[in-house]
Write a protein that binds this DNA or RNA. Structure first.
Lengths: 126, 126
DNA sequence: CTGGATCCTGGTCGATACTG
DNA sequence: CAGTATCGACCAGGATCCAG
């Protein structure tokens, strides 16, 4: 698609604070894509359920990842005022709109990562 | 020999060593997307030209990023046997195939990062 | 010109323990 | 159950110098 940004400086990755760069920094986080994917599939999950579905994640990382995504407006946080508290997370419409580009990444990875692995393990080119 | 990952679960982000996760770790690197984008536009560039087009990059990071991308089979490295040496880099067909998912990311970012910024700067939930 | 080697710093991530 | 706080390990990233 054409870029509708003035030609002087593309709105690309070349400015500090450009949107693409910021986004990659964000979804490049170790657990971000996993949270989004799991919530895209399950719809709504509680903290402990997320934790259970994400082997290897620590409380701290899950907590901070969720905080970040809520702050970014990608996740909605719903608290049931009971004891013990129940906190539910689900994607916002903004978060769901990320599914498409994330799916593009996933498809590329599944289609081509074998080639990448081959290239990495093959000493010489060709 | 590469060890095969048992495919009991989805090839998603949930196994260590899953393709999507590996890819995100890789293109999440600070300069990777920039190198790919600049080479996608320019076709072929030398080391110093890349450096000039990427403000803020250090020799080391450009060098290591290029090494990584060459090792991954995304870039082709061509050396002119002269002194001083001239080294040219261009995307391989594999590297060019990454343009599409990268464009998807870019489009999402340009379309929605304003909303993300708004969410981040807005104190209360809506 | 290319890019490797070295040293240093800051942020990210993980384990653990604690509060409401 | 949900979330925070603290500590420490690790690594990406940057500056500089050196070599082919």
């Amino acid at each position: 698609m054409g870029d509708l940004v003035p030609q002087g400086r593309r709105g690309d990755l070349f400015d500090p604070g450009c949107p693409t760069r910021q986004l990659l920094d964000r979804i490049g986080g170790k657990w971000v894509a996993m949270v989004i994917t799991v919530l895209a599939e399950q719809g709504e999950l509680r903290f402990a359920e997320l934790e259970r579905r994400m082997p290897g994640v620590s409380h701290k990382m899950l907590s901070s990842t969720l905080q970040q995504l809520v702050a970014d407006g990608l996740l909605a946080r719903r608290v049931e005022p009971v004891v013990p508290p129940r906190v539910h997370y689900q994607l916002t419409s903004l978060g769901r709109s990320l599914e498409a580009p994330l799916a593009a990444i996933r498809e590329w990875a599944e289609a081509h990562m074998a080639e990448v692995d081959l290239a990495r393990t093959t000493p010489g080119p060709r």
